[in-house]
Every structure is written in C-alpha cells, then in structure tokens.
Design a protein around this nucleic acid. Sequence first.
DNA 1: CTGAAAGCGCTTACAG
DNA 2: CTGAAAGCGCTTACAG
Lengths: 344, 344
Amino acid sequence: MSQLAQASIKQVAEIAGVSIATVSRCINNPDQVRERTRTRVQAAILETGYSPNTIAQSFRRGRTNVIMVVMPSIGDPFFTDVMQGIRSVVADHDYSIIINETNFNTMTAEEVGAIMVSRQADGFILLASIFPFGNEVLAKAEKRSQPVVIGCETISASLADIPSVHIDNVAAAREATDYLISNGHKKIAFISGQSTSLLTKDREFGYRAAMHKAQLSIKEGWVLEGNLNIEGAAKACGKLLKHPDRPTAIFCANDEMALGCMHEIKRKGLSVPEDISVMGFDDIRYAEVMNPALTTIAQPARQIGERVAVRLFKAIESGSQPNNQPVILPHKLIVRQSVAKPVS
Amino acid sequence: MSQLAQASIKQVAEIAGVSIATVSRCINNPDQVRERTRTRVQAAILETGYSPNTIAQSFRRGRTNVIMVVMPSIGDPFFTDVMQGIRSVVADHDYSIIINETNFNTMTAEEVGAIMVSRQADGFILLASIFPFGNEVLAKAEKRSQPVVIGCETISASLADIPSVHIDNVAAAREATDYLISNGHKKIAFISGQSTSLLTKDREFGYRAAMHKAQLSIKEGWVLEGNLNIEGAAKACGKLLKHPDRPTAIFCANDEMALGCMHEIKRKGLSVPEDISVMGFDDIRYAEVMNPALTTIAQPARQIGERVAVRLFKAIESGSQPNNQPVILPHKLIVRQSVAKPVS
DNA sequence: CTGAAAGCGCTTACAG
DNA sequence: CTGAAAGCGCTTACAG
C-alpha cells in the first residue's frame, strides 16, 4: 500500500507474478496484454505506487518527449502569449515543455550550447538572443541534428539556414518612426537594448532608415542603450531630457523601456504626450492599461509561438530541418494615447 | 573534425586508444588521469565534438542535478525576482534550473504529481497552487522523498509538514485593508482570485477580518472573483462601479488585477484616487510606473526565492525534509498614489 | 499473449 | 594510473 523508496518495474513484476516485459507492455501497449494479466499488473502498480522512471525511459528510448524553450527571462509579459501559442501546438503531441532562462541573456553562448547538446530535450525553441557567439553554437546543434527553431529574435545572415519565425523588425521600426514623423515630430530619439542584441539592431536600423528617408538628422546622444528594462530606460530617458536639443518623441525598442520613459518623464514633472511622445514595441498586456495608454507595435506573439512549435515538430518528426525559409509574420501599429503632435 | 551523429564515449575512447572508463574519468575526475593520457583524450573529445549524454549520466547516477521550478505562468512579472533569488542560490551548487508552467494553474493535480514523481529533477520548488487536490499529490511526493519546497503560496493546514516560505498573507491583507480604513474608507470591495486559490482565500480572510474589526459591513456583491488577471479584474470592477452601493475603494488580491481596475475606472470616465482608491498586492515592477503609481503590499520576492532554494538544497543534500516549520518573511505596505481619502 | 535477453551510454568499485 | 566488468531501469525484437 505504501512504501518509502520508489518502486521499480521489477517489484511490480514480482508482485504481479509476471516479467518486467509484461509490466512495460501494460504501461506502453496495454492491448498487447491479456486482460486478466493486465488487471493483475495494474493492481500491483497501484499497490506499489509505481511510476516509471522517466529518465530511464528517455535513456532507453533515445527520446525525451520534451521540448525545451530557451528564453531570456521568466517574468517577461511578452512571452505569456508566445508560450500560449507554443502550448496549443504541443498539446496535440505527446510532449511536455520545459523552460530554461538565459538570465537576461547573460548566459554565455557556451552554456546555451551545452544545454542544446545535452539531449535533455528532443528539440529546442530559442526565444533568446545568443549573438554574437551564437553562430557557432547553432551550427553545432544543427550538425548534430538537434532540431532548433528560433522565435521572435532576428538572426544574422550567416544563420539564415536555421528555421526562424519572427516579424520584420526593420520594417516595423520604420513604420513606428514614420508614425511619429507623420505626427509632426522631427526630433526623435531611440532607446535600444544591449549592443549585442541583433533584434535591437534591426529596430534601430529601421528607425535610422525612416529618419534618413525623411531627411531628419539624428543628433549625437539621441540613440541610447536602455538594457531593455524599466530602470535602464529611465536612466537613458533622464539623459534625453537634459539633452541640449531635447527630442520631442522617444521610440523605445520595447514596451518595458517605454514604461520606464513614461515614468521618468512624469517624475521630471513633464507629461506624455503633451511634452514628449513615447512609442513602445511589443504590445505587452500592460501597454493598454498605462495612463496614457501606450502607442506601440504589436507582435503576433501567440501566432509566433504556434508557428515556431509547428516547425519544430516538423523537424523532430522528419529528423531534419526541412524548410529553412524564415517565416515572417505581420506586425501592427497600435495607436493609443502616448503619441501626439509636438508643441513646438 | 566534424560528424553528423552524436559521438559517444566509445568513439572517443577508440580514437584516444583508451578505455571508456578513462574517458569518463577525464571528464569527471581529470586528476585521476595521467596528463599524457588526458591530453590524448581531450584531443579526441575535440575531434569528435563529444559531449556526454546527460540523460545517460542522470540515469546512471540516479541524480539529474536539476531542480525544477513549477509556476503558474511564464510572463508573470512577480516571478522575475523570485527566480533571481532562486538562481543566486543555485549558482553555488552544481545544479541547473528548469521551469515548468502549470498554465495558470489549469494543470490538474495529477499532472503536477506526474511531473514530481517522474524523477526529471532532484528537487522541486512549487510556486503554483495545486489546491484542492494538492494534499494527496504532495503527500505522495514526500513519501517518495522527492524534496519539495513551496514558495509564496499558502498551504493548507494538512500540508503543514511540507516546508514552505511565504509571507503572512492574512496579516498583509489585514494591513492593506486597515490602511484603506485609516484613510477614511468605509465601503471597501475585494477582488479575489479563483476560489481554489488558498493564497487568495488568505488575503480575502485578512480583508474580512479587518472589515469586521472596524465594524464595517461588506455588502453583497463587494467581493468578486477576478481570475488574477487584468481582464478578469476589469470585468469585476465594471460590476462594482455599477453597484447600487458603490465602494469607495477596491482592494485587489494582486497587482495585475489592480491595473485592470485602474484601467476600467479610467475607461468609465472616473479617476483614481479621486473617485475610487485602488490597492494592489505583490508590488510587481509595473506598480511603480503606473499613473497614478499603485499603492500595494510588497512581498520580499527575491528573498523568498533564496530561502526556498536554500531549504530545497538542504533537503536534497540530507535526503530528507529536515525542518518543516514554515518560514514567514516580512511584507511591507508600499504607499504610493492610488489611495486617497474618499470624497464622501 | 508472455518471457528471456540484449542493450541504450554512462560511472565506479575492484583488481592490477 | 588504467581497464574489464557490472549494472542503473527500462524497451523491444525474438522466440515460443
């Protein structure tokens, strides 16, 4: 009825008076076993509280039935929807999901690589940036035919053969900047992420392209790093507010930083959007409840999750990376209240 | 130099001209191997790109060197700091962390139980609620001496022997309610989580106790469920705003719901705190950047993470659950701008 | 329908 | 310092 240690298949077999092969069959292919035998085995399983040793199963099968999602940080609201998408696809397969944080991408590429070659999962979804060393790591994983699909993150040209699903970050950032320009802004600042983030680089590139096309100059000190978090952005925003040629609008590479800016602007006694307009990126669920509500670019997060997972399962099932064209999903400009015409 | 499939220890041994035992030693106990041999083996490892099969190692060792954190949802900002705390402790051990979502606690207790008995990890940190079936599941895990520590969540009396680390949710909610009362509020509503959440029940209990002590009555329809998210709270808040005896203050069982309330109140053309005061719980990082900034109860999230992890490692290392007194950490009332005196 | 046996890739006492 | 061998708990072709 009760036991202290974990029961093994051997004990179940003994109690049921069958071989361990039969116990295994009762669990994995019950219809291969005569009903009378099965009943006996099930009773023994109940009695011992037996549950198979997953590690032993994975080892023996050479398959874990686990997919691993690697993301920069737990607690990033953007990933809520991406995970929902992933989960909805995984639910149709006999797989479970485990998540691994790269601790805000401070994990080294070697560490990420170690995770991927460790065979702890049958496939990997990378939502985290592992640039600049990423190429080597991913190439290694691919060579070992560990299925990997990259989601959300931009990938460098040299990795173009790793499947990925993301929006066109350059175009989206251009559109966001154009929106600010169309509102009459000429002095537009950009707060980016770490310089190692390709994603951020793409968004910065889009911003620069839009400014250039509109023949607007970007003053020195208008493009700052904000570490993709509230605090970093608040600090960067503080510098912008003291800039001799103060921008009338700030475009942030993600919403979290936009919130940091709005907070800092308010703290300095100024108002959004009356004194300064703020534009975000991602459309996390807090963007809408901000006051003023944040104007931003929405990523189809859930859909990205779904597509990433579908591609991963295709790769797992075919034992290869079949289709390596990046999937580009549409973004959307979400107009709310944090952008207005500049006072001038 | 390069290979398609994964190299195994056997191939490395062959190339290096040694036994697999020696290869194993080179990896796990390098100083047991003569330097000349080691050099040769390391060259072979490099040549083959070998990395040990983690699953095989775990299986053989009967130990995974993994701890698993079970949480309701990725993307909940509250867990950012808890994870930081956990990570800081895990960093001192030769362990890695994997995370498992219960999908907003919709996973059944059986599923959670299956995770815990699967031996995929050497220990478990439960940040998710698995009430009401949780007792059985946890008892089972404990019987199998799978170390489990519960963090943040309240646990029912019958589980008092499972180690846990959390704040005194009843006292904290009482204090929050007292603060509203001391501001002159007499009509105070409470938005709770799902009825299955013990945590929420504790907070509701604290609210009721404070109201009772102040001899304030709680009108029918003042206590509503908000599903712990923005949308659910907005809906509940909508009902409160239409209540014939409209409350002057709303206390939410978490910050996320407080944000939902603030949004709904604004949407209805009312103001926080001028028309209605709002109080949250948790002090997520977005609480401070709200406008008005959210008054709330702070949990020592990082510290909870640290203590939970320390207790778990103690249990893992001692092979038992040594100390089962719950650890109660201090909470703190964070006064910001979302609460003011009622207009009356 | 069932069992005996091989073997998945490692680690580790044991012997030398 | 190194190797041969046992064995971790399963699954699965093979034989009956």
